[in-house]
């Protein structure tokens, strides 16, 4: 179910992306940050769904506030001539790996449980 919604969403997104015109080069930096924020949100959503503490308000607000803060940091970095957006990227990617770890553990334990059950059945 989860995988289906992700795949359908991505395909729809790619189709929309091909229809919309390309953006100017200077804006592409901000879009890149938004992409990383969206990726982080997707992983966070899946992980919280697995932990059964998914909250719609937290999910939506997290996505928008994180993306906007990251874009503001990029803008500030451009004005100060410091690559502050790197900090946002590091935090996002670090969280992505954390969430990926949670997702991985969940599915690994699921698989091992299944195989245990099969073995027990075989014994009987």
């Amino acid at each position: 179910m989860m995988i289906i919604s992700i795949i359908v969403g991505c395909i729809l997104g790619v189709v929309i992306g091909f229809i919309t015109p390309t953006i100017p080069y200077t804006v592409s930096q901000y879009l890149a940050i938004a992409i990383v924020a969206a990726l982080d949100s997707v992983f966070g959503g899946i992980a919280s769904n697995i932990k059964k503490n998914f909250d719609m308000k937290v999910f939506i607000s997290g996505f928008f506030v994180n993306a906007i803060l990251a874009m503001l940091l990029t803008y500030l970095g451009e004005k100060l001539n410091v690559d502050i957006y790197l900090a946002a990227i590091i935090v996002f990617v670090g969280r992505m790996f954390n969430n990926l770890g949670i997702i991985r553990r969940y599915y690994l334990s699921k698989i091992s449980e299944k195989s245990k059950k099969i073995r027990e059945k075989d014994k009987k």
Binding site: G9, V14, G17, T20, I35, A38, G45
Partner: peptide
């Protein structure tokens, strides 16, 4: 999550 994926896909493609 599907909606965020739509945004993600569109942004990536653009």
């Amino acid at each position: 999550i599907g909606i965020v994926c739509v945004v993600l896909g569109a942004a990536l493609t653009v």
